[in-house]
Design a binder for these strands. Sequence first.
DNA 1: ACCTGATGTATCGGTTTGCGATATATTAGT
DNA 2: ACTAATATATCGCAAACCGATACATCAGGT
Lengths: 117, 117
Amino acid sequence: MAPAKDMWRSSADLVVLSVLADGPRYGYAITKQVAAQSSDSIRLTPGVLYPLLHQMERQGLVNAEWDTVKSETGDSKRGRQRKWYKLSAKGRRRLKQRVAAHRAYQQLIESFLPAAD
Amino acid sequence: MAPAKDMWRSSADLVVLSVLADGPRYGYAITKQVAAQSSDSIRLTPGVLYPLLHQMERQGLVNAEWDTVKSETGDSKRGRQRKWYKLSAKGRRRLKQRVAAHRAYQQLIESFLPAAD
DNA sequence: ACCTGATGTATCGGTTTGCGATATATTAGT
DNA sequence: ACTAATATATCGCAAACCGATACATCAGGT
């Protein structure tokens, strides 16, 4: 059975931190990667992703840097803007922590569930 | 590491359904059992438990029945009131469904996480 | 007799959160 | 010229949450 829609949202931060642990990403790339790797189950919509990213930035879990993509054909002065997010040492620590907490929580919940068939 | 406080709340229904799958319970008994079996990590406070139980009753997942506990020493006419909740067939189906969804969700999230040490 | 703490069920409403809708700009393709 | 895709961002209302509170019974201690 597919996971219920939106069930994943409480773990959005875990997913984002994990993706960033693999290397710097910009927002839209995160959205796309997560959608692809989850067979479209997890849709990190702008309304979810950006507030989360900004919060992480405020908390020092990520460092952000703007990048301007120059276009060959484009005529406008400013190219497309991308904001790259890079996991900080603090973010890496937080990820480890969150993963541990998540797994402990899983075991705890699982201990109440009827045995798997 | 202990699970973060309150992390379990999104799975409260799963836990309650699971406990009820083991046999009929009244609310306070559920609270106590869950606290005991979770080393006090999971506190199903009245504000959480009763609305949940009532909702399940409305949805036909449980059947409820009042029971009056006669006291030996008590002098009041009405004894202590207990409301027993019994999982219905529909509730049993729902539990199975929720457990499957929960486990699928777990696997999905886990697939994004860095490998366990 | 009285008090306290445990047992037992229940609701309410202020706070917090979630996130769909929306806005804005650039670029690629036809 | 137009459309779809790329890219970031915010806002505000609805929904969810759950601490606080209320009420009644009962057991045990003094």
